[in-house]
Design a protein around this nucleic acid. Structure first.
Lengths: 233, 233
DNA sequence: CTTGACACAGAACGTCTGTTCGTGTATATT
DNA sequence: AATATACACGAACAGACGTTCTGTGTCAAG
């Protein structure tokens, strides 16, 4: 019997080529050449790439301008969604978080609740996918010194946090203990009238705060980023 | 004497070229060639176009990839606004790193040295500004369990690394110790014939490996990302 | 078995494209 | 006047790049 259907879906190679095209375009700002597609899609012959490119054009996934180098553009992504250039389609995919200052053993320079505080100069770019939906009131500080090692946070790490005056159980907060005049990052647990501050390092013991006056919550920790480059020792 | 550095504006030809580039990109989905720019900007010589393109790159209006046909992209429009057209955008500001698997006490599932490997489904978006320039051979693993706490890395953390079989002093590497069949992340120091593996946590002691056969370097650690959401305890 | 469509590799070919170099022409500087 | 500098042209060259042709292997239909 005849298999009347000729409208079969895309093969792995079709998909792969679309993926490569999309990624290349996003990263370079211009389309790949046939040979570059071949290299990235593990296709050794330019003619084979061309072969699939023709089919993709036939299926209206791409458009081609023959005889023009890199003369192709993506119309739909591998998932069939219309392709919007520029890496983002209206919604920013990342956020530039202001680097408000440094956090050390005792002090943290905070931008207060100061808004309108937009200093492009020092900021950390973080993909939105790593953050909560609401990116308001977010700032970042760089950790200065080893005083946070019990929170598994090292010198030079970047801590992204949100301004807050209180916290829910289980959230990691930046707290200042007025008595000691120290600043630490701990998991927050309210247990009756006292508060348990649990280090992130499971091998370390929690500390307890009985007097709520002694506890100043500065913010909630959302993300810790550590760039591993140079050595510490 | 006057300093040669004058902050002069753009000439008509500069503006015209920017205009042509923007229009061409919008209409075709890929950048123009030098000759096409010349034709539309009424410049008869390719070298003149190249001459102005160099200046525009110097002024950071465009970016160029030499030797690559049509390897240019607009950064700012003629008015100085950042270029973010529907036709295309600038370079990607972030990279999607494939999440290759998990790394636990003993094992790490690696994508071999497999290139051209990208699985859109599981990836981590990381801003380019946090990574080295060369983003080849980069992958990410999620940490499973507490076995890396001596590297200041916790359960659930995401470790971004680059494939490597060797390392330079001071780099943090993922190593497998064949004898113990364990996997750890340590700072690497070759000291004569032996290797010192230094934990990131400064309160912990290093370990020494005398037999190089016992040491398998799996990759270099570039970045550690910790999303602080739920509580561990 | 033969045929033919299909997927693929490799090489050859010609055009496209960026680069370079020699030259020319204004304008300003010494 | 002599020299330096910015701007401009066109030709030539070397690679990059798309196209095309030949050949190979697979697989299912006839």
């Amino acid at each position: 019997m005849m298999m009347a259907r000729k409208k079969k879906g895309l093969s792995d190679r079709h998909l792969k080529i679309l993926e490569v095209m999309q990624k290349y375009q996003d990263e370079n700002g211009y389309p790949p050449s046939i040979r570059e597609i071949g290299r990235q899609a593990k296709i050794s012959s330019t003619s084979v790439v061309n072969y699939y490119l023709d089919q993709l054009e036939e299926a209206e996934y791409i458009e081609r301008d023959r005889k023009v180098s890199r003369g192709m553009r993506l119309l739909k992504t591998a998932n069939g969604e219309p392709f919007e250039l520029g890496g983002d389609g209206g919604v920013e995919t990342f956020v530039t978080i202001p680097l408000a200052g440094r956090i050390g053993a005792g002090i943290m320079a905070l931008p207060a609740s100061d808004f309108a505080y937009f200093d492009e100069s020092t900021g950390v770019d973080v993909a939105r996918s790593l953050l909560p939906e609401d990116t308001a009131d977010i700032f970042a500080v760089e950790v200065d010194g080893d005083s946070m090692i019990d929170a598994m946070i090292n010198d030079g790490d970047i801590v992204v946090m949100r301004h807050a005056k209180d916290a829910r159980n289980g959230e990691m907060v930046a707290v200042r203990l007025a008595d000691d005049d120290t600043m630490t990052l701990k998991y927050f647990y309210k247990e009756g009238s006292r508060v348990r501050l649990q280090p992130a390092n499971p091998t370390m013991e929690p500390i307890f705060v009985d007097n709520p006056k002694n506890l100043e919550i500065q913010g909630k920790v959302l993300l810790v980023i550590r760039q591993v480059g140079a050595s510490p020792i």
